[in-house]
Design a protein around this nucleic acid. Structure first.
Lengths: 149, 149
DNA sequence: AACGATTTAATCGCGTACGATATAACTTCA
DNA sequence: TGAAGTTATATCGTACGCGATTAAATCGTT
C-alpha cells in the first residue's frame, strides 16, 4: 500500500519533470535561436539583442528610448547600455529631444541604415537554418505572441 | 514608376518587421515568462535558471555537471557559477567523483530535496497566472521542443 | 610506461536583463 | 508661481549565457 506522502511525492515528480515544463521548452528554444543567430550576426558585428534594436529602428527612425523599450519590452536599464554600444559602433546617434529634455532620441546613421540590406540576408539565412515549413513558424509565432501578455 | 532599389527596400521593410519575426516573439515570450516566475521564485530564494537546475535534480540526483549541462543545454561556464550559488544556499553539494576526478557530482541536500513541495506550488501558481487552456500550452511546448534542435 | 589526444570543469571577459535607486525635466494645481 | 507629483533616462548591483581559454584527469596507442 502507498501512503499519502508517497502519492504527493509521485505527483510532484510527475508535474515537475523538465520535459513537461513549458517554461523550459521556451527558455531552451530561445537560447538555441540566439546561438543560431550568433554566427550570422557576427558578420555584422551585432549581438542578438542589438539586432532586435536595429529591427525596431529600421521600421521607423528616429524613436525615443522609451518607444524602443515599449516595442522591445525592455527597461531603460537594459536599453541604455545597449544603445551606447550601437552608438559606439557608429550605427545610431543619441540626442536629447529639444522639446522635452527628458527624452533621448535614437536616430539611424547612414551606416546603420545601410546595414538593412545585410540584415535581410541574415533573416533569410536564419530561415534556411531553421529548416521548418513557413506555416509552422507563423503558427508558432502567433501562439508565442499570445502567451503571458 | 518604382525603381528596383525601391522595391528591394520595400521587401526589406516588410520582411524585417519586428512583428513578423519569430525570433522576437520567442525572445520576448521568454523574457515575459521569466518575469512572471520571478515573484513566485522569490519566495524560494531562487532565480529562474536556478529553478530549472533544481528541476533537473529533483528528477534525479546525484548528477554530474556535464549531465546537467546536457539536460539544460547549458555550458559549464554558465552552470558552474550557478551551482556554486545553489551550494552557497545549502540546496546542493558539489563533490569530485572518486572514480573520475574530472567529474563533479551534484547532490541535493535535505533542504534542497525538501524544496520540491514548494516548487509544486510554484508550478501551479504559474499555470494560473498564464490563464491559458492546458491543451494550448502542451501544443506550444511540443512545437518549441521541435524548433531549431 | 609514456606521450599525445580527449574529456571534464573552471575561469575570464563581454553583453545582456532587471529591480532598485537616482536625477533631471516636465506637469499640476493650490 | 512654486512645491509636490510624475515621467524619462541613467546608474548600480546581481545573475545569467556563452565563446575562448586553461588546467587537470583519463584514455589510446604504441
Amino acid at each position: 500500500m502507498t501512503s499519502d506522502a508517497d502519492k504527493a511525492l509521485d505527483k510532484a515528480v510527475e508535474v515537475l519533470r523538465l520535459d513537461r515544463q513549458l517554461c523550459f521548452a521556451l527558455y531552451s528554444a530561445a537560447n538555441r535561436v540566439t546561438r543560431l543567430y550568433r554566427p550570422l550576426l557576427d558578420a555584422l558585428g551585432l549581438t542578438y539583442p542589438q539586432y532586435l534594436a536595429m529591427l525596431v529602428l529600421w521600421e521607423h527612425s528616429p524613436r525615443t528610448v522609451g518607444e524602443m523599450g515599449q516595442a522591445l519590452d525592455l527597461e531603460s536599464s537594459t536599453l541604455t547600455p545597449l544603445l551606447k554600444r550601437l552608438e559606439g559602433a557608429g550605427l545610431i546617434v543619441r540626442s536629447r529631444d529639444p522639446d522635452d529634455e527628458r527624452r533621448v532620441i535614437i536616430s539611424l546613421t547612414d551606416a546603420g541604415d545601410a546595414m538593412r540590406d545585410q540584415a535581410l540576408g541574415v533573416a533569410e539565412q536564419f530561415f534556411c537554418k531553421l529548416d521548418t515549413p513557413l506555416p509552422e513558424l507563423v503558427d508558432l509565432r502567433e501562439r508565442l505572441k499570445r502567451l503571458a501578455v
